[in-house]
């Protein structure tokens, strides 16, 4: 078969590439903008939505739900209680967050367990975790912005923290 005939078909290949490229970019843009898909994050499968968005939206929903039942808060308002969140797999490792509350105030938050797949994730965690900690203390909830460049870690951190807060029924 001749090269000439094949060359004449290259525009089709190029058109396909452009279509595939713009198609995925467009789908991704639509997908990221739809809040409905963010719920999938709760199962640990982030789907195609960005993990950062997942963490915020998921935590936010739960946050709102608990605020509605805040009257059922524990009677001893000033008791100091501590809870540990479950180890959450965030793709590049597992993270578990420990939280201490006094009444309804988050007084301390720390990382109880951290395992990473490889050194790069370890570095990213080392940079992101102090930022996340101060964000939680100032926001007083698990609904924090993802640290840039550490969206997977942030998402895992937020999920573990929210689960810990849930067990305390404080939020």
């Amino acid at each position: 078969m001749t090269a000439g005939r094949t060359w004449r078909r290259t525009p089709l290949f190029v058109a396909g590439s452009v279509a595939g490229f713009t198609g995925l970019i467009a789908w991704h843009a639509v997908d990221a903008g739809t809040p409905a898909t963010a719920g999938a994050g709760g199962t640990g499968a982030a789907g195609r939505s960005r993990p950062a968005a997942t963490a915020r939206a998921g935590a936010g929903q739960r946050h709102a739900a608990h605020r509605g039942t805040s009257s059922r808060r524990a009677p001893t308002d000033h008791a100091v209680r501590t809870a540990m969140g479950p180890g959450v797999n965030f793709g590049y490792g597992t993270i578990a967050v420990k939280v201490t509350v006094r009444g309804t105030r988050i007084t301390a938050v720390s990382v109880a367990a951290l395992q990473t797949l490889e050194p790069t994730s370890q570095q990213i965690c080392a940079q992101a975790l102090p930022v996340l900690r101060s964000e939680v203390l100032s926001a007083q909830s698990a609904s924090v912005n993802a640290v840039s460049g550490a969206s997977y870690t942030s998402a895992g951190y937020a999920r573990s923290l929210q689960a810990a807060l849930d067990t305390l029924h404080a939020w």
């Binding site: 089709l12 290949f13 396909g16 279509a19 198609g23 995925l24 840039s148």
Partner: peptide, 23 residues
């Protein structure tokens, strides 16, 4: 041929969608 092209486009886009400006 178009399918092969679409695959290339999607693969390229995949690298871009997982990237953020801050990264």
């Amino acid at each position: 041929l178009a399918a092969a092209g679409i695959g290339l486009g999607v693969t390229t886009a995949l690298a871009i969608t997982t990237e953020t400006a801050s990264q």
